[in-house]
Every structure is written in C-alpha cells, then in structure tokens.
C-alpha cells in the first residue's frame, strides 16, 4: 500500500519557516539573565511577604487565645 502523505516532507514550506525563524531568533542572553534575576527576586519577595503574613496571623491567633 502506498504511504499516506504524512511523512517525508523534511523540506516543506512550514519546516523551512520553522528553521528560518529559529535560526534568526538572535536571542538576547542578557535579557534572559535579566528574566531569571527578576524571577528570583520576585520569588524571594513573595516568600518574605507570605512569611510576614504567617507571622502576623500567628500573633493574632495568640492574641485571640489570650482574650
């Protein structure tokens, strides 16, 4: 049986477009490093805000226990 038309199109227009776009990405590595740095800072910030919140909740709970 002949194979369906779902293979062997390694040089298709869309594949060529993918290769072209990928090879012309000119990824800015300093921008990528900036993204990572911002991400780490944000995680630290969110964690410290959560810890702060937890500590305030804990203090409030103790206060209510005393009442």
């Amino acid at each position: 049986m002949p194979e369906r038309e779902f293979i062997s199109d390694k040089d298709s227009e869309m594949r060529a477009k993918i290769r072209s776009i990928m090879s012309e990405m000119n990824t800015d590595t300093s921008k990528v490093e900036d993204v990572i740095s911002k991400f780490e800072d944000k995680l630290e910030d969110l964690n410290s805000r959560l810890e702060n919140l937890e500590s305030r909740v804990s203090k409030l709970e103790k206060k209510f226990d005393l009442l």
């Binding site: 038309e5 779902f6 293979i7 062997s8 199109d9 390694k10 298709s12 227009e13 869309m14 594949r15």
Partner: peptide
C-alpha cells in the same frame, strides 16, 4: 522511523 522521517504539516490538520 517516525523521528527520522518526521510528520508532515498536513498530518495535524488532517
């Protein structure tokens, strides 16, 4: 075999 030959762009639409 499928890695070597790859899918056609028509495949997904089909």
């Amino acid at each position: 075999k499928v890695i070597r030959e790859g899918y056609s762009e028509k495949f997904f639409r089909h």
